[in-house]
Design a binder for these strands. Structure first.
Length: 288
DNA sequence: AACTACTCCTGGAGGC
DNA sequence: TGCCTCCAGGAGTAGT
């Protein structure tokens, strides 16, 4: 679930509260979380100061004196900072709750920073990864993951979206949006939200989209990300809760509830094996 | 080459 | 209550 807004929220929290601090200790309880070439371990970070944070799509890069650390939260990763020396923050997957006691049983890594500040990485499904690498290895690593343009980059324009989508003309639009080499940062929730904003059916073929539909899609993506950023991202909806109509996210997780735009009942279907929510009236598939 | 299906993993929800 | 099944979802990889 952590998509660009959640990762960006984590990055901002780290930038504001942890950059400039030195790591004085750590605890790792899930060894496979760490991916590193032989000889590189978290021990190399102890005594090292965090100097910078960057984000590339859903990847987070933390630059320390000694090493570069790349974090991907995948499906269920969460970053929470606590301690008497900082206000604290929470970002990423909402389980466990952001105010749950830390460490949680699924907390796999804790960094201790000087001045009583702690960063907890919790991941109930164990899919997240933390890569350790020397600074000089970062450019090659970033090149190897082949990310398309970032949604928050200044060059992210309707024209660029049209160009990038041309890479997958025979694909359905939703899987194309989820392809990080087309554009970087969209996941399952915001793909549904962007398509709802643009009034496009997720199974429309990319090659069938008109120029004006692609402009609508671009606007839908930008609108969705701008809605998500201030709150630090979407909340996975509890199916028992009956969220208010008009509350973000508008369609994802809202099967059986009215479309906030037209009142038609939101349906759920599977598109390329991903749970997909849409308004069957706003997002009609043209007759073929 | 381009697209799709499967895999990693666990907790929570729902059925009986 | 408790066991069982299903589902969530990013991205690498295997298959068509």
């Amino acid at each position: 679930m952590p998509e660009l807004p959640e990762v960006e929220s984590a990055r901002r929290g780290i930038a504001e509260q942890l950059v400039g601090r030195r790591i004085i200790g750590y605890e790792l309880t899930l060894p496979k979380l760490i991916v590193a070439e032989a000889g590189l371990t978290l021990d190399s970070l102890v005594g090292s100061t965090l100097n910078d944070t960057q984000r590339f799509g859903k990847y987070l890069l933390l630059t320390f004196d000694s090493l570069s650390v790349v974090i991907h939260l995948k499906l269920s990763g969460q970053l929470i900072a606590r301690g008497s020396g900082i206000p604290g923050f929470a970002a990423g997957h909402p389980v466990p709750a952001y105010d749950a006691p830390m460490p949680h049983k699924s907390t796999h890594l804790r960094f201790d920073f000087e001045g009583d500040a702690h960063l907890f990485l919790t991941d109930i499904r164990h899919f997240g990864r933390v890569w350790l690498m020397p600074h000089e290895a970062v450019p090659d690593y970033l090149a190897s993951i082949k990310l398309g343009p970032d949604l928050l980059a200044p060059e992210f324009t309707a024209k660029l979206v049209a160009e990038r989508l041309k890479r997958r003309p025979a694909s359905k639009i939703k899987p194309a949006l989820l392809d990080q080499s087309v554009v970087a940062g969209i996941g399952n929730i915001y793909a549904d939200e962007s398509l709802w904003q643009a009034k496009l059916h997720p199974e429309r073929l990319v090659g069938s989209l008109t120029a004006s539909e692609i402009r609508r899609l671009y606007t839908g993506i930008v609108t969705t990300i701008e809605l998500a950023l201030p709150t630090g991202g979407a909340r996975i909806l509890n199916t028992k809760a009956q969220p208010d109509v008009g509350e973000f996210p508008f369609v994802h997780g809202r099967e059986g509830l009215p479309c906030p735009r037209c009142g038609t009942t939101i349906i759920k279907m599977r598109v390329n094996n991903r749970g997909t929510y849409l308004c069957p009236r706003c997002q009609r598939l043209p007759k073929t």
